[in-house]
C-alpha cells in the first residue's frame, strides 16, 4: 500500500490541494445551478480567466519543462508546438493532425540534433 500510493501525507495533500479545491465548483454548480445564465458577463470573464490559466500551464510546461522534456532544446519545444498549431489550423481544426505533426517535428529535431 505505502509503495503504491505513497504515505498518507501525500494522499492528504492530494485531497486538500487537488480534490477539494476542484470539486467545490462542481458541487456549487449542482447546488446553485439554474439561477445562472450561461451567456452572462460574469461567466464570460470567468471563462476568459480559466482559459488564460490553462494557457499559463501550457507555457509553464514548455518554458520550465519537467523530467525528460528538459533534454529537448527550448527552440525545438516551441517550434514543435508552433508547427502543431499551424497544422491544426490547416487541417480544419483537427486535434489529431496537430498533435501528430508537433510530435514528429520534435522527434525529428532531436534525432537530427545529435
Amino acid at each position: 500500500m505505502s509503495d503504491f500510493i505513497g504515505d498518507w501525507h501525500a494522499l492528504l495533500v492530494l485531497v486538500l490541494a487537488g480534490f477539494l479545491p476542484n470539486e467545490i465548483w462542481r458541487m456549487l454548480g449542482l447546488w446553485l445551478g439554474g439561477g445562472v445564465d450561461e451567456g452572462s458577463e460574469l461567466l464570460i470573464w470567468v471563462r476568459a480567466v480559466a482559459t488564460a490559466i490553462l494557457a499559463g500551464v501550457i507555457a509553464q510546461i514548455l518554458v520550465l519543462p519537467p523530467g525528460a522534456l528538459a533534454s529537448v532544446p527550448g527552440i525545438l519545444r516551441y517550434g514543435a508546438v508552433a508547427v502543431g498549431l499551424v497544422a491544426f489550423v490547416a487541417a480544419k481544426r483537427s486535434i489529431l493532425v496537430g498533435v501528430v505533426c508537433g510530435e514528429l517535428v520534435m522527434l525529428a529535431g532531436q534525432l537530427w540534433w545529435r
Binding site: I58, I61, P65, G67, A68, V99
Partner: peptide
C-alpha cells in the same frame, strides 16, 4: 519520454483552441 510529456501541452493547446468561441477566448489563450 520527452515525446510523451510533449503530448500534454499539445493536446491542451489544441483542444482549448478548438473550444474558442468568442474573441475573448482567443485573446485569453494567446
Amino acid at each position: 519520454g520527452a515525446a510523451i510529456l510533449l503530448l500534454t501541452p499539445l493536446a491542451f493547446l489544441l483542444s482549448t483552441a478548438r473550444n474558442c468561441r468568442e474573441l475573448a477566448d482567443i485573446v485569453a489563450l494567446g
